[in-house]
């Protein structure tokens, strides 16, 4: 399976380089589960929001789960194209006021894509958003489901 971390929206090489730092940092934060991560974390040009994402599979369907706290349903965009599910959107700040005492949270646009290993039926995809968790259920296409084949020996 191929998990694409992000798709670059900027075009310059510099922007791309910064994006790579941001993605790397998101990965490292998760990898180390460090107690210090929030302490040192300030949203800056090297960081961007990389929401955590899971992919599950059973014989009939894939389920993609993403942690997207604090969004409005209408601010989440989902697309399925050539077997690639893309989740994107924007998180708006609750109140843009004075400078906060502490800011660890990210705001702005995010995007994540997942290439699904087998075909899915695009017409039957269902998504729910509850308690800040997005859950997308993608039923497998009939031809992609495992089949039992009877072998007759004769």
């Amino acid at each position: 399976m191929n998990i694409i971390r992000y798709q670059n929206q900027g075009s310059s090489d510099l922007a791309k380089a910064f994006d790579r730092f941001a993605v790397l940092r998101g990965e490292l934060d998760r990898l180390f589960d460090s107690s210090f991560a929030p302490v040192f974390r300030t949203p800056d040009s090297f960081s961007r929001w990389v929401p955590a994402l899971d992919v599950y599979q059973d014989k009939d369907q894939f389920t993609v789960v993403a942690e997207l706290p604090g969004l409005k349903k209408e601010d989440i965009e989902l697309s399925l194209h050539d077997g690639v599910l893309t989740i994107s959107g924007e998180r708006k700040q609750e109140k843009k006021g004075e400078e906060g005492y502490r800011s660890e949270r990210f705001f702005g646009r995010f995007q994540r894509s997942v290439t699904l290993p087998t075909g899915v039926d695009g017409n039957k995809v269902k998504a729910t958003y509850q308690d800040g968790i997005l859950k997308v259920v993608l039923p497998k296409a009939e031809e992609a489901k495992p089949k039992q084949i009877e072998v007759s020996v004769g």
Binding site: A52, V55, Q57, V65, K135
Partner: peptide, 16 residues
């Protein structure tokens, strides 16, 4: 957290 209700095995997991 409420337990996550998903069926099947995890192919990829980042949520803790």
């Amino acid at each position: 957290q409420q337990p996550l209700s998903v069926s099947g095995e995890a192919l990829h997991r980042e949520t803790r």
